[in-house]
Design a protein around this nucleic acid. Structure first.
Lengths: 140, 140
DNA sequence: CCATTATTAAACAAAGTTGTTGAACGACAG
DNA sequence: CTGTCGTTCAACAACTTTGTTTAATAATGG
């Protein structure tokens, strides 16, 4: 009866997932921002530290940081003037998940993960494989 | 003696790798284009077929196809008027590689791939782990 | 010869991105 | 009081992206 409702909320879920991938991939599509993530992988950094390697104004770098923050990739702790940024890599798992679906298509790489997927395919319950028959226009 | 040369060519290599990630991630940062890749995962499609699910002009969709092609994700075979597009997922491995470096940071997901990586870490030869100490400003 | 076909090209508008500079903020040291 | 500090904000320019519409293309079928 409220099937239409559950379809609706499913679509909303799917849409927001898609939106998350949009912001995520767009955040990653810039070398400055990827460089900042690299720095943060090493340790916590202030905005000024993050900006230091780049030949641009602090204001510009600050906006890159904000883009990363909007994508959920940076957590910021403000201790008076100074903003301390930490990496939050968890949103990257969405990108990883998205990519996992396509992993089967570059089969010339028979390495680590690929082998695993093959093993899993041979078993009764493939654990988290995406739906096999995506209609065009749904789920990005 | 030609150290500066090799450093130069190394930087060129790194830069072009970075550029590839730029175009790749930007291509993925759009729901229409991700949807097209999904269609192509199922089978080869013409541009018209790829465009069909979307509420936009064919010209607009055609440009999305071109973006995917520029990122190397689509191979196009022109058999008279009709352009047949096939998925070429291989460039996605660059994204996968990039993400792999950060996988250790969302350790709360102890699923498939994560477990594998742990097992491999316990062995003598970790097969393809990224360099442990990236200096800021290098290698994006 | 003319229309149909699948697709790109060209010209345009609206919107978004990325950089710049200059100003503001508000505790703390002088 | 007055600077100084790390940072964001606002206003602006240059460029890119994404959509639109209209036209070009060139073999094939009538």
């Amino acid at each position: 009866m409220n099937d239409s409702l559950s379809v609706l909320s499913f679509n909303i879920m799917v849409e927001s997932e898609s939106l998350q991938l949009d912001t995520l991939f767009n955040a990653l599509g810039d070398p400055t921002r990827r460089g900042m993530l690299r720095q943060l992988a090493e340790r916590e950094r202030t905005v000024t530290e993050l900006a230091a390697p780049y030949d641009m104004s602090l204001a510009a770098a600050s906006r890159h940081v904000k883009v990363l923050e909007s994508a959920g990739l940076i957590r910021r702790e403000v201790r008076w003037r100074t903003h301390y940024c930490r990496l939050n890599a968890e949103p990257l798992s969405a990108a990883q998940n998205w990519l996992a679906f396509y992993q089967r298509f570059w089969t010339d790489r028979l390495d680590l993960l690929d082998q695993i997927l093959r093993e899993e395919d041979a078993r009764p319950q493939p654990p988290a494989s995406p739906s096999p028959n995506p209609k065009p226009g749904e789920k990005t």
